[in-house]
């Protein structure tokens, strides 16, 4: 556990002076089930990417690369909407 900063060390006015610091908080630890993709079956429709509430589907050059397990909360929406059912929810 990082030691929390005191009032003399944090910026004034309660502002968070950098963008996207939430990336330091790994919500992947919330999971019970995790999605696993069967790559050969995937048609790269990218629907899993646009419906993921946690931006945890990795996409590069228009191709679905996998999941960001640091943040994936295991909600199962991707498996539910995949048109070719190539995503399975497994324990982990």
């Amino acid at each position: 556990m990082k030691k929390k900063k005191g009032w003399k060390e944090i910026p004034i006015a309660g502002i968070i002076d950098k963008g996207g610091t939430a990336r330091e908080y790994k919500t992947g630890s919330w999971r019970t089930f995790k999605p696993v993709v069967d790559k050969p079956k995937c048609i790269n429709c990218l629907q899993c990417w646009i419906y993921c509430p946690d931006s945890s589907v990795l996409v590069k050059d228009g191709k679905m690369e996998g999941f960001d397990y640091d943040y994936c909360k295991g909600c199962g929406i991707c498996a539910s909407i995949c048109p070719v059912k190539c995503i399975k929810m497994e324990k982990g």
Binding site: G20, R23, T27, I50, S55, D68, C75, G76, I77
Partner: peptide, 26 residues
Amino acid sequence: NIKELSKIPERLTPGHRLCSGCGASI
């Protein structure tokens, strides 16, 4: 075009603490 959209950098980063499966972040 979904492939074009996938190139836009994410402006809402992961690591937020909305419930898993929340409609608001989508």
